[in-house]
Design a protein around this nucleic acid. Structure first.
Lengths: 350, 350
DNA sequence: GTTTGGCACTCCAGATTCAGGAGTGCCAAC
DNA sequence: GTTGGCACTCCTGAATCTGGAGTGCCAAAC
């Protein structure tokens, strides 16, 4: 339905959107005529604006204000009008310099990624750490903490460490622990977590094991240790929302920060991004976030063929899509390379 | 100098402070007279208020507004006027129910503590995790991640896990790793980190070691893995600041959230708390935080004689000290017990 | 001498009014 | 189809006004 827009209408819509993104003020017909490349009178522009409003692409806060783009307009803008360039040299340089942290384990890199995303985009950066269950197990270890408490430590392929406390009925000696560890690592190393779980159950039912009380116990403990952990979500640069005039309203801000603290809705959104692939753009109401007026741009990072997690940016709908999209895209690819085992060192070219 | 306040002045000051805490509005003389227990005319109260203002305990926003307590008044209030009760039954119950997480490792407990502090106090909860260097080493492990990358995993006495990526010059076989691990654990287990560091250096200089290339390497790797990590600070419930009328100003809010994101100043404050002991109260400018008008109440949690970290609450200077102080105090003691090794189970009595 | 009622004074908060300006919509002319 | 003109709308910010809450001070009462 927006396909039947002629060139002129598109040009004007684009100008309005970009103007609004830059100023946060409703855009009037006169402002557009002053735009270079538009040789029309304000009256003509008004005619076009009027059509665009009927198409649901523009709305006016009140009779005598200018026009403001609707979510739909932004959607049309990113789908059709916007040609996304590549990341700026300066941004690229900053990323390449600051992201490959010396001796940075995966979680440090991810946290820093979140900061970088925020600092480059001037919006808030979000990073969803790899879902534990989506990973390949590298190493499993039980450490005695004292008494009957064991700390189960699981290390994934990419060096992400999860730990969980388990309690045992009777104390286990260090020697037994070592035997358990060896057995479990032999059994499970290199398997994806989903497979690990399957294998554990399978093994528990096998005859060999039911005879060996210790190994049986090992299996049960591992199963406990595998219990789902809450997803790790980093959000950095929330304070950038204070810079946006459309959020000067305190009630609005409160809603936003509440949403950030609860994380639930955001996680749901990021899960959707993870299920999809590549760059995802959610505009305004498409985000399903309770506080409206926000957009989210995400991209999946991966290790080879396996998707690991999601990085992205959250900001006002009135967002500088043109610059943010390449940042998210480039960063996701960089993170993928940094986490891909054996490529810790800075890649020469992308 | 505030010692020469007579009973009546104290009573009035107390009433003003508590009224202001409850309403966030400047308190007038008439409001005080309505207070039960005060049988004075507004005029008399005004005389007293005038004295209190001269003593620097009250200030008036403008001629015809009521009075507002100064930082100094709050200080006098918590030092002298306030008699701190114990935590309410309801709060106690909630803490005992929700804090001893099933299978919760230390970091989960600490994060949950932060949430609980916020939810009980209605301000923001802060938790400084144990400084890595202040801890006793329970276990040290190297996991091969692929290529020449090793993940060093250090577990402290209280089940807090730190990990750090280290790179080696040449690949190390699994057998060698095991040997290294055994050697290091025998050498270092049960030592406080400061001691660990010392022992490593000592050992590196010993003759036996220089002969054994592998062990020498193990020592060097451990030293890398021990490098200082950034302090872990949880702040939960930042959104509560939106409920405080004195922070309805956007510029102010922005400053506050920036301070939370940067954490530096807050860490400094918490370090001071850790150096001291027991309940610490920082009022307004005493916090040295850039955004003024905030107070912080902290308490140290410990394991036996060793201080581990700090928990606390941050909110507006106009804070319900009477209820917050017992919350912080009780929670700190509860956390201490939960983390004290071997006492994971819920203690029957405090 | 402490307490109190009275009174003039101050100053804020909110309502009201007003003028200017930016923008629109429509129409008739080009 | 495009444009200039014009009446109309509605927001914004400044200015004004009023009522109320509160103070400070003084003289009278206790």
């Amino acid at each position: 339905m927006t396909g039947n827009l002629n060139d002129r209408s598109r040009q004007i819509l684009k100008a309005i959107i970009e103007n609004y993104i830059a100023t946060a003020e409703p855009v009037g017909s006169r402002t557009i005529t002053r735009q270079q490349g538009v040789n029309l009178s304000p009256a003509s522009v008004r005619n076009v604006m009027s059509e665009l409003e009927e198409l649901g692409l523009l709305s006016s806060p009140h009779t005598s204000a200018g026009r403001v783009p609707t979510d739909r307009a932004y959607r049309f803008y990113v789908n059709t009008l916007l040609k996304v360039g590549s990341v700026s040299d300066d941004h690229e340089e900053q990323l390449l310099e600051r992201l490959p942290l010396q001796g940075g384990d995966a979680s440090r890199i991810l946290r820093e990624t979140s900061r970088m995303l925020s600092s480059l985009s001037r919006y808030a950066g979000i990073v969803l750490a790899p879902r534990f269950t989506e990973n390949v197990l590298r190493h499993l270890e039980f450490v005695k903490l004292g008494g009957k408490r064991l700390l189960a430590i699981l290390v994934t392929e990419h060096g992400i460490v999860h730990n969980k406390l388990v309690e045992v009925q009777e104390e286990i000696s260090s020697e037994e622990l070592v035997r358990m560890s060896n057995y479990l690592n032999t059994l499970l190393q290199g398997l994806p977590m989903t497979e690990v779980r399957r294998r554990l159950i399978e093994q528990m039912q096998s005859d060999k094991i039911t005879c060996d009380a210790l190994l049986d116990r090992a299996l049960r403990l591992s199963k406990q240790a595998l219990a789902e952990t809450e997803a790790d979500l980093f959000i950095e640069g929330q304070a950038t929302f204070f810079n946006q005039p459309e959020f000067s309203d305190t009630a609005r801000m409160k809603e936003i920060f509440r949403a950030f603290e609860e994380k639930g809705q955001l996680l749901e959104l990021l899960d959707r991004s993870l299920a999809a692939d590549g760059i995802q753009i959610f505009i305004g109401s498409e985000t399903n976030l309770a506080p409206g007026g926000m957009s989210v741009i995400t991209s999946v990072y991966r290790s080879g063929a396996r998707k690991l997690g999601v990085i992205g940016i959250i900001g006002p709908t009135r967002m500088g899509y043109a610059s943010v999209i390449p940042i998210v895209d480039y960063t996701a690819r960089l993170v993928s390379r940094l986490l891909h085992s054996g490529e810790q060192r800075l890649p020469a070219v992308m």
